[in-house]
Design a protein around this nucleic acid. Structure first.
Length: 423
RNA sequence: GGAGAGGUGACAGAGUGGUCGAAUGUGCAUGAUUGGAAAUCAUGUGUACGGUUUUCCGUACCGGGGGUUCGAAUCCCCCCCUCUCCGCCA
């Protein structure tokens, strides 16, 4: 959510943001609602002040005296009026709030113009995409793939997009998770093991409700949601809290399974490990002082990149253009790994700075030493990393002539051997 | 899942219909005192929104929501959470 004061004082900034993100929002309607809401609020508050004053007078009067009874009669009318006006205020306020929630976060000045994913800027490229194994092929075509990554049985037991990982497949998944977590710890992120189902308030605070309800699995009895990312429980950790300024920045990481319904995709995007309904991911979160958010975004991105470098996987970094930037983000980098068999880039991380947009909605603040007043923190998050696509790239890029997969040196201590075998 | 108790400001803890944003204590901040500290004394110490704008003023908030009433922290209803006991269970 945007700062209502910003909207009032600099509507042109908000208008420019909407244009840069290529969104269609009727800003004038929002402004009109805002004015209406404020006018109505003043009216109601004046009425309540009147009520309060009368209340104090009546406390001094003798109960049951003629003056007292007269006052009761008089205030009955005011009371009815307050009730009616409050009902109206409630309606307008709900509309106003709804309208405010349609306003996107302001893109950072460094975000390039553009409407489509093609207009994202290639920020950097690392590693040699031509240096992958000459035997690379799409991972689902690798002989024996189905034994270690059993989609058929997953579909029987649950549904499409819920594979079983078996044997060396399961072991490699665990190795990657452990490697990612250890690296995050080493970089100063405190490890957290959060709940993987959250309530509606938490989903709302990070913007997954109400608009993205369809992307989450829901429980029947309790109105809980399976998390689409660890960002959801982690960001909510400090919801409605005021932190010490000295405690900032706070770095946290978490491994969780992630659940996404993602209806509507098809084709090669959803083949094999490319897109699943349940997948494993290590997520990195930062709560920082507003002056540090972009320095922190760079170091967050660099941490994620470093994981791919250590895994010896070619990758590139995209700086998202205005039109491809999410609603809530001020700036975002996507990191894509090179999939040598499919000969395409696969997104394995998305590093975003939200500035105060999430924090305002979730009411996460810190007490500023200077003023002693609470201020909103800035939040950032990024994957470090999503497992299945890294897995896909590893299987493809490192496929040997004999059908085995070479394990990157850094993973060998975790995996316990130098080659993964499909036999 | 069943029975009972409870949820008040940073913390402890009063308050059962009116002058209560809320006693008191602790903590914290500033000042006095001191060579310095402790102790003591004094003053101050929530958040949000709106109006105004170097000052202030108004309104709201006593777990959440609804109701009764001229008026609710206080009465009624629903929900959530915590604790104790029982049941169940890894």
């Amino acid at each position: 959510m945007l700062d209502p004061k910003l909207l009032r004082e600099s509507p042109e900034l908000v208008r420019a943001a909407i244009a840069k993100k290529h969104l269609d929002v009727d800003l004038d309607a929002v402004l009109a609602l805002d004015a209406q809401w404020r006018a109505l609020l003043s009216e109601v508050e004046a009425l309540r002040a009147k009520q309060k004053a009368a209340n104090n007078e009546m406390a001094a009067l003798k109960k049951g005296s003629p003056e007292f009874l007269a006052k009761v009669q008089e205030m009955k009318a005011v009371s009815a009026q307050v009730k009616a006006e409050e009902a109206r205020l409630g309606e307008v306020e709900a509309k106003w709030r709804g309208a405010m929630l349609t306003l996107p976060n302001i893109p950072h000045a460094s975000v390039p113009e553009g409407r489509t994913p093609e207009q994202n800027v290639v920020f950097s490229t690392h590693g040699d995409t031509t240096a992958v194994s000459p035997h690379a092929k799409s991972h689902w075509d690798i002989a024996g793939f189905d034994r270690l990554f059993d989609f058929a049985r997953g579909a029987k037991v649950t549904g499409a997009g819920f594979p079983f990982y078996v044997g060396d497949g399961a072991r490699l998944v665990r190795s990657l998770i452990q490697f990612f977590l250890n690296e995050a710890s080493r970089a100063g992120y405190q490890e957290v093991n959060p709940p993987v189902v959250v309530n509606a308030a938490s989903a709302t605070a990070v913007g997954q409700l109400p608009d993205k309800e369809g992307m989450m699995y829901q429980t029947v009895e309790d109105q809980f949601y399976l998390i689409p990312t660890a960002e959801t429980p982690l960001t909510n950790f400090f919801r409605d809290e005021i932190l010490d300024e000295a405690a900032l920045p706070v770095f946290r990481c978490a491994y969780t399974p992630c659940f996404r319904r993602e209806a509507g995709s098809y084709g090669k995007d959803v083949r094999g490990l490319n897109r699943l309904h349940q997948f494993d991911k290590v997520e990195l979160l930062k709560w920082v002082h507003p002056s540090q958010s972009y320095v922190e975004l760079d170091s967050l991105r660099d941490h994620a990149e470093n994981l791919l470098r250590q895994l010896e996987l070619p990758y590139r970094v995209l700086l998202m253009c205005g039109g491809d930037l999410g609603f809530t983000q001020a700036k975002k980098y996507d990191i894509e790994v090179w999939s040598g068999g499919q000969k395409r880039w696969l997104e394995v991380s998305s590093c975003s700075c939200f500035e105060a947009f999430q924090a305002r909605r979730a009411q996460i603040r810190f007490r500023a030493k200077e003023t002693g007043k609470p201020e909103l923190v800035h939040t950032l998050n990024g994957s470090g990393l999503a497992v299945p696509r890294v897995l896909a790239a590893l299987l493809e890029n490192n496929l040997q002539a004999d059908g085995r997969v070479r394990i990157p040196t850094v993973l060998v201590p975790y995996f316990g051997k130098e080659y993964l075998s499909f036999a």
